[in-house]
Computed example of a mutant assay.
Amino acid sequence: MKVITETPRLIIREFTLEDAPAVLHFNTPEEVNRYTGDAGVCTTITDAENIIRNIWLVEYQQYGFGRWAVVAKDTNTVIGFCGFKNETRINAVDIGYRLHPDYWGQGLATEANQACIDYAKKHMDLDIVYADAADANTGSINVATKLGMVYHSQYQEGEFTFNRYAISLKTGGSADNS
C-alpha cells in the first residue's frame, strides 16, 4: 500500500481491498451521509469492496490520486477518507473527506485535508481545488475555511443548497471568485 503523507496523528494512504470492513464502518452511521447524496450506497461489505475496487483503485490508476484512507496512528485504524477526486460534474478537482462520527470534533478532518493540500502543492499539478458543503453542514464549511478556501458560488441539488469553496494551489492563496 502506498503512503501519501503523514501528520502527527494520521497516516494518509491509498486504500486496499482489505480496508472494506473499515469503509463499511465509517459509511454506516446515518449522520455521516446526511449531506452527501449517497446515503444507502454502502451498506454491505460487497458495497465497500466495490467502492474501493471500482472507484478509488481505478482513480489511482487513471489520475494518480483519489480518495485516500485516513488512518489513526495510535490504533492503526482506518477512520475515514480524505483527498482529491476528479469531479466530472464540475470538470475540476474536488477535495473532500468522510470520517466516522467517533472522530468528529477533534480537528482530524482539517489535519488530514491540510496534509493533502500540502502534498498536492509539492507533488501534484493542480491549479485550483474546490470543496462543496451543504449550507447546513457547518462542520464541513468550517473545515473548508480553516484550509484557506474561500466562498466561490452556491447551487441547489435536490433538497440541499450547497456552497462551493475554492483554493489556488499554485499561489497558495484563494481562488478567484469569477
Rank of each mutant, 00 (worst) to 15 (best):
L126F: 12
Y60T: 11
V32P: 01
V71R: 03
S178D: 06
Y63G: 03
I167M: 15
D74F: 00
N27V: 02
G148T: 11
R98E: 10
I45W: 13
P21S: 10
F65V: 00
K122E: 15
V41G: 02
H25G: 02
P8W: 06
A109M: 08
E6L: 00
F160R: 01
I11Q: 13
L108I: 12
G148V: 09
E30Y: 06
A22D: 15
E87P: 04
Q156L: 05
I55G: 14
T145S: 05
T28I: 04
S140A: 06
N86W: 01
T36M: 04
T28W: 01
A92L: 08
V23Y: 06
E14L: 12
K121P: 04
P29F: 04
K170V: 10
I79L: 14
D19G: 08
L10N: 15
D74C: 06
E31R: 15
K121I: 12
G107F: 07
A39M: 10
E14T: 13
G96Y: 03
I4D: 06
V58Y: 00
P101I: 05
L99T: 05
Q62G: 01
F81D: 04
N50F: 00
T171V: 13
L57K: 13
G83D: 07
V23R: 03
Y35C: 05
K121R: 07
G64K: 10
R98I: 10
D135I: 07
G80T: 04
L57F: 07
N33A: 06
V129Q: 12
I4K: 11
W104T: 10
L169D: 12
Y119R: 01
Q61P: 02
D132W: 00
A69N: 13
R164G: 11
A22K: 14
F160H: 09
P21E: 15
T77F: 04
C82D: 00
R34L: 10
A133Y: 13
Y130V: 14
A136Y: 02
D94A: 11
D102G: 08
E159L: 08
N91W: 01
S174H: 13
V143F: 00
W56V: 14
S178T: 08
A120Q: 03
G64V: 13
N33H: 05
V93S: 03
I90S: 05
A20N: 10
A120F: 03
A134S: 14
G66Q: 04
A144T: 02
S178R: 10
T161D: 02
P8D: 12
T5W: 03
Y97Q: 05
A20P: 02
D47F: 08
R34S: 08
P101Y: 07
V3S: 09
L99R: 10
K2P: 01
G173F: 05
V150T: 15
N177P: 00
M124G: 05
V23M: 02
D102L: 15
F26Y: 15
R9P: 06
Q114V: 01
A39E: 14
T138H: 03
A48G: 11
S174C: 08
F160S: 05
